[in-house]
């Protein structure tokens, strides 16, 4: 059977890991490639790099990071952050990324998702959706999508947006609850389930994981196809192995070989 994917995410700034695994045996803990190797060896099912480099000049660094990672890690790699043009996508794929995640650029120009999907295939186009609960919104979910790391409201209702993105050829939705992100209070399960049940494509739950039960609930109650987490892995609260063993025992089958 198809297993739930466990995806650690690394924030990368100017080619360096901003927050990452705190392992003493790493020669260079700030090197994303070293961190990627740790996760690869630990049995992560995919890896995600979020490039948070602000300045355009420094953005080239991510291509080198991706290329060096792809030389050593033979697992699926998603790269997001600042993906704006089909040329950005082509360069990331050629460097060795398997998928790219598109966020702000999709909101600015939804047709970009369609163009990217037609050009490179739905399998490599992930649309990242940052969602926040809002007051007084007459909508299906009471959720609105935000851009620029959750700073800018868009007035777009979350579920209909995800449906539209699936329709435009997204291969996957990376859904982050901005309300939960960083709280360690668990995924927004109602939101996750509402989106996962609405779209025909896989949904990755993200934002708020603090315990292993949260990972399980993302799958069993949130109906997510994959779970993404950063902090619990980075700070060594739990290892990938512990997370997967726990999920396996609690109704969310994962790959253990």
């Amino acid at each position: 059977m198809l297993k739930t994917r466990v995806i650690p995410c690394l924030d990368v700034n100017k080619g360096r890991v901003v927050k990452g695994v705190n392992f003493v045996d790493l020669v260079d803990a700030g090197d994303p490639v070293e961190q990627a190797r740790v996760y690869d060896a630990a049995g992560a099912d995919e890896l995600c790099f979020l490039d948070i480099t602000a300045s355009h000049e420094d953005r080239e660094t991510i291509f080198d990071v991706v290329a060096r990672t792809a030389e050593q890690c033979f697992m699926p790699l998603t790269v997001g952050g600042g993906v704006r043009t089909t040329d950005d996508i082509r360069k990331l794929l050629l460097a060795g990324a398997d998928k790219v995640s598109i966020n702000t650029a999709a909101v600015k120009n939804p047709a970009f998702v369609r163009e990217a999907s037609e050009k490179f295939g739905a399998q490599c186009i992930v649309v990242a959706v940052d969602s926040k609960r809002v007051e007084d919104v007459d909508s299906k979910s009471g959720h609105e999508i935000f851009t620029h790391g959750g700073r800018n409201p868009t007035g777009i209702e979350t579920i209909s947006w995800c449906e539209r993105m699936a329709d435009y050829g997204a291969g996957e939705i990376l859904l982050t609850s901005m309300d939960r992100d960083g709280t360690k209070g668990g995924f927004d399960l109602d939101l996750t389930r509402a989106v996962a049940d609405a779209v025909p494509i896989p949904v990755i739950a993200s934002g708020g994981v603090g315990t292993l039960d949260h990972l399980v609930a993302g799958v069993t109650e949130g109906h997510a196809s994959a779970v993404l987490a950063a902090s619990i892995f980075h700070f060594g609260t739990y290892s990938i192995g512990e997370a997967k063993a726990y999920m396996q025992d609690h109704g969310a089958p994962v790959r253990l070989d």
Partner: peptide, 9 residues
């Protein structure tokens, strides 16, 4: 879901 995406036996 379609695509069939991930690790399968």
């Amino acid at each position: 879901k379609i695509p069939h995406m991930g690790w399968n036996t």
